[in-house]
Design a protein around this nucleic acid. Structure first.
Length: 210
DNA sequence: CACCAGGCAAGTA
DNA sequence: TACTTGCATGGT
């Protein structure tokens, strides 16, 4: 049995097939979605994004120009709407002032330097920063989330389901630095977490990794 | 009714 | 450094 990280990936890919992440039509939509989905179900985020699209507001300067009250109302379905309104605004200010609202300009920056800059934006923590780097900009950074920690802790593949950085390093030191692989791997872990390794199913019944 | 969902910042010891 | 708490909707 192959318990290597690549072996687990191969097994998941064979079971689920390609996931084609991130579910979004543009890099900007990925960045906004990454903030909106913090500790929130994706279904609720989809409604908020659809709301923005319907009003033709999924664009940096237009979003930034909205009043906090108006923006909060538009993203209401994603929960924590007051907090997320401030987080979206702080990110948009950074994105507009430092990169002229261009994800292409942003992608030219050195990956680790950009990561530090993203982390300095209020409301962007490690998972949100890495989601933007990987899924919006195509940088080879592994995204760790609640599913990742739960799956690997539950299956005892990593003994220390510790802090974000230590889990991330395990992946990045044991896999080729390939954005396509990191993209698909994390997407597959989310799929597995939702369907087989959820809190509702603590024994991972019929889990493809078992 | 309770619990959960693709976190983060701020406060406390 | 290592906890704890507030934030909030919508589905199961």
């Amino acid at each position: 049995m192959d318990l290597s990280l690549k072996g687990i990936y191969n097994k998941l890919y064979g079971f689920f097939g390609p996931q084609r992440w991130w579910p979004a039509d543009s890099a900007f939509e990925v960045m906004i979605g990454a903030i909106l989905t913090q500790n929130t179900s994706w279904a609720n985020v989809e409604k908020a994004i659809a709301n923005l699209k319907k009003n033709k507001l999924l664009e940096a300067s237009r979003l930034y120009g909205l009043s906090d009250a108006r923006l909060a109302l538009l993203i209401r379905s994603a929960g924590y709407y007051n907090v997320k309104t401030k987080r979206l605004k702080s990110f948009l200010e950074f994105f507009i002032k430092d990169y002229k609202a261009s994800h292409k300009k942003m992608a030219q920056a050195d990956t680790m330097a950009l990561r530090e800059k993203l982390l300095s934006v209020k409301g962007i923590g490690p998972e949100t920063a890495d989601s933007i780097l990987l899924y919006a900009l195509g940088k080879p950074v592994f995204v760790v989330d609640a599913y990742t920690k739960r799956i690997f802790a539950r299956h005892k593949i990593i003994n220390d389901a510790g802090d974000y950085g230590s889990v991330q390093r395990i992946f990045m030191k044991n896999l080729p630095k390939d954005a396509g692989l990191f993209n698909e791997y994390h997407a597959l872990l989310v799929r597995l977490g939702k369907e087989y390794c959820s809190k509702n199913n603590p024994k991972c019944t019929s889990c493809p990794l078992s």
